[in-house]
Write a protein that binds this DNA or RNA. Structure first.
Length: 269
DNA sequence: CGTTATGTTCGATG
DNA sequence: GCATCGAACATAAC
């Protein structure tokens, strides 16, 4: 479930199980997941090094090796990280595995092969090359910056929220949730979300992402932990608006399924 | 068997 | 250049 909140939790997992530890072995069981480096090259850069720092930018996770360079991880549609102590507990569809010298494993798991594991010498350069905009939770990306981005686009507001070159981290599910909380129709032209509404959208963006992280995005019982009034638990065919009970509408926007409340979410502004 | 899935990229088209 | 649409990638679940 890798949008920003999910990746934020993988970030924590990486820190808890890998930070400061020496890597003893790298196993790549599916080379097609690697981008710009082969299994031997990856092992040469990682084995014997320690994970010295980590950062997340949008849906990307990066881990710095003490002797230089960064491991880059993108989760695609179905990727996740798993930590375990016994190799017998390795999850299915693990594609890359780190074994630490002191024991313990970190696995990159991905059923479909839409994500990527790679390497970069410079994290900032990597983010620039990927064409990523500011991270959605970067304080420098404020309400004014969001309003400016909306005003500059002729696309639907939802398409802009999901554009990683504008804001990094928001995907299909959280775009729906943010627009629901802001009570804005996903098909509203972005340039017609302005003033107080743009402020409201910014507030919803922040609150939704922070709340999802706090409630353990993607983990067991995540949906049960969300505060009342969230769309997510109802975000499926046959779902109803948690505010007014109206049957949710389902439309395709940019090829992705969008759920929204036709009564609460204003299409005209 | 057909449809859909939390992402991204590429080519065709308007 | 900008925007939209469908297909592609690869696999599992319903």
């Amino acid at each position: 479930m890798p949008e920003l909140p999910d990746v934020a939790l993988y970030h924590r997992l990486l820190d808890a199980h890998g930070l400061g530890r020496e890597i003893a072995e790298v196993r790549v069981s599916e080379p097609r997941i690697l981008a710009g480096i082969d299994a031997g090259g990856l092992a040469a850069r990682l084995v014997g090094g320690r994970l010295a720092a980590s950062r997340r930018h949008g849906k990307h996770l990066l881990a710095r090796i003490d002797r230089g360079g960064w491991l880059t991880v993108h989760f695609g549609m179905s990727g996740r990280l798993a930590a375990y102590d016994d190799p017998a507990d390795a999850p299915a569809h693990e594609r890359v595995r780190l074994r630490f010298a002191a024991g313990g494993f970190l696995g990159y798991v991905n059923v479909r092969l839409l994500g990527r594991v790679g390497w970069t010498e410079d994290a900032d350069a990597f983010i620039a090359e990927e064409g990523l905009g500011p991270d959605a939770l970067d304080p420098r990306f404020d309400a004014g910056a969001l309003a400016a981005a909306l005003a500059a686009s002729r696309r639907d507001v939802k398409t802009v929220l999901m554009d990683q070159s504008v804001i990094a981290g928001i995907g299909n599910v959280y775009a729906d949730e943010i627009l629901f909380q802001a009570r804005i129709h996903p098909r509203r032209p972005a340039r017609r979300v302005a003033g107080g509404e743009a402020e409201r959208l910014y507030g919803a963006l922040w609150t939704v992402l922070e709340t999802a992280i706090r409630c353990g995005a993607g983990a067991e019982a995540f949906l049960d932990r969300l505060p009342a009034g969230f769309l997510l638990p109802e975000r499926h065919s046959g779902g109803h608006c948690p505010r007014c009970g109206t049957a949710l509408a389902v439309v395709k926007i940019g090829g992705r399924t969008s759920y929204f409340c036709p009564r609460c979410q204003d299409g005209a502004g």
